[in-house]
Design a protein around this nucleic acid. Sequence first.
DNA 1: CTGAAAGCGCTTACAG
DNA 2: CTGAAAGCGCTTACAG
Lengths: 341, 341
Amino acid sequence: MLRAKIQDVARLADVSLSTVSAVLNEKAIVKESTKQRVLEAIDRLRYRPDYYASNLARRQTRLFGLIVSNLINPFFAETAQAIETEARAHGYEIALTSTQFSPARLRECVQQMLGSRVAGLAVMTSERDDEAFSAAEASGIPVVFLDVGKPGERATNIRVDSRGGMFAAVNHLIHLGHRELLLIRNSQKECGPPLLSHRLRDQGFAAAVRKCGIEDLTTLTVDVAGPGADAGYQAIATIAEGSTFTAVIAITDMVALGVYRGLQERGLRIPQDVSVIGFDNTYISRFLTPSLTTVDIPREELSRAVVSALLTQDKEREGGGQIKLATRLIVRESTAPPPAS
Amino acid sequence: MLRAKIQDVARLADVSLSTVSAVLNEKAIVKESTKQRVLEAIDRLRYRPDYYASNLARRQTRLFGLIVSNLINPFFAETAQAIETEARAHGYEIALTSTQFSPARLRECVQQMLGSRVAGLAVMTSERDDEAFSAAEASGIPVVFLDVGKPGERATNIRVDSRGGMFAAVNHLIHLGHRELLLIRNSQKECGPPLLSHRLRDQGFAAAVRKCGIEDLTTLTVDVAGPGADAGYQAIATIAEGSTFTAVIAITDMVALGVYRGLQERGLRIPQDVSVIGFDNTYISRFLTPSLTTVDIPREELSRAVVSALLTQDKEREGGGQIKLATRLIVRESTAPPPAS
DNA sequence: CTGAAAGCGCTTACAG
DNA sequence: CTGAAAGCGCTTACAG
């Protein structure tokens, strides 16, 4: 069974190609009766314009590319959703692709997006790859990086204020009276250097500790490889009996979920024995028991910032841009004063 | 800045178009020295073949379309990921799109996929739309529906054995001694008729109850609109004081998460006071406290079944197919005998 | 408002 | 192994 083409529609409706095209794209004004004939023919033939032919013939697409690391991480999924909604509101589709944290896949994805002549490209991955980044920047289309480091000459860089979030988290714990903090990070396998967004959270933690002015503050940092919840669980399960801590900061909510489980298995109650803070404010965090104190990254603002940057024309964006997004600590039930010692 | 085209590469490398194309597509064998020249030119010009032009010129794409309801639901995200991995192993890309549970969006998505001349289309949505389905079937490409009802003439239908899963869940509870069961379902707004996969789970529940042969079995079903966890929480929060139940079956793990929270707020312990069973075996379920007893839908088998059906040629698939996928109850900590009354 | 014609950037037989 | 030519199915000026 052969696909109908625009020719077939034109013939059946007894009009010219341009008329069918006009009806399809609602560009020119077509006489109502003609339009009906065309519509009927389209319907009868189950005609669907060929996407490749029409995009080839057009000068441009109404498509934004969005590259994320992974769809299973709720933060990426929620953010992708928010961006798609925002983009649709402006008449753009989203082509979504995920890298599974592989720099090589990231390069492929960028090339694929450029080959799809996207009107703009957002790269929101944890991993980074210089070649991929420079290819994106050199393309001439609007490019947005999320927390990906070097602002670059032309790209817009969105920086989530992870540092600020970490400051808030650390200060919250200190004010509650905690003096022994445990920071748990996870890394994906084969990921090369640590994820920038994690590094920023990291640095924020270190800076907050340094600046708080508390002398007897003790900190410990644990790194575990693997998916979030597994890593958080492992971190707690394998930490030496001797190590003492009254509060845990998990680098993501998923890690915190694993921490919850690990603590419970060791017979430690949250928050009576140990306080826990997450990062990302994912959907599940407020349904956990106890509900999770976490750092919120504003999805709405983020998606608006991304789309508006992608919509921006070249001339307006010389020198690249830097957009900073505030974070906010959401205090819930998982944090409380440390147990009396 | 203009994109380089194949012409530019040919000119710079001093060869013909077909030679460049041969290098690009690794079809014909090109002399090594020529190949190097071409590769160099490609590199120098940052050339990227235009996706639309090449797909238009080709007879076919190596692209499968995948339509899901929503990316935030971990089940869809995890399944999409598994399918993408499986498809890549066979040399196919996945175009992923989500409907947000809207039948109108589903129609658009199908049309868009057909316009993209996908080599196969998998529809894994909770909602359904006859027009969209028949458009997909009429297209002549391999089509796979997941739990979407009517097998159709040509499409393959994958049925998850929800009924079997529900039987296992109900029987597990009955064997533990439970006699008062609560089933909690959620529905998405604007979704029209109840989701088929939920209906199947529903019917499975009813059938299991009917067939178990226990006389004094009491069941209650509650419906709440909204996202999973919210719905589960609301269901428990708003259920009348008088209603008694010793076990809850949640229609999805996300609903179970909300149920956990709701029960805890009402001072009920899991599983000492109330047992809870979920559905989907999502990533988070084993990290909850207590870990969640749930019905597993085998992701691997599912993705293999989907991809293999999409790969199947027309002739082999006359009359459509029906593939049934077994489910399995995973017993964890959230189920135990009911409290002594 | 409608029609004929050129062109989008590739791929693919087909000759050489 | 390489080159010239046709064609993929649209869109878009440009005349009418």
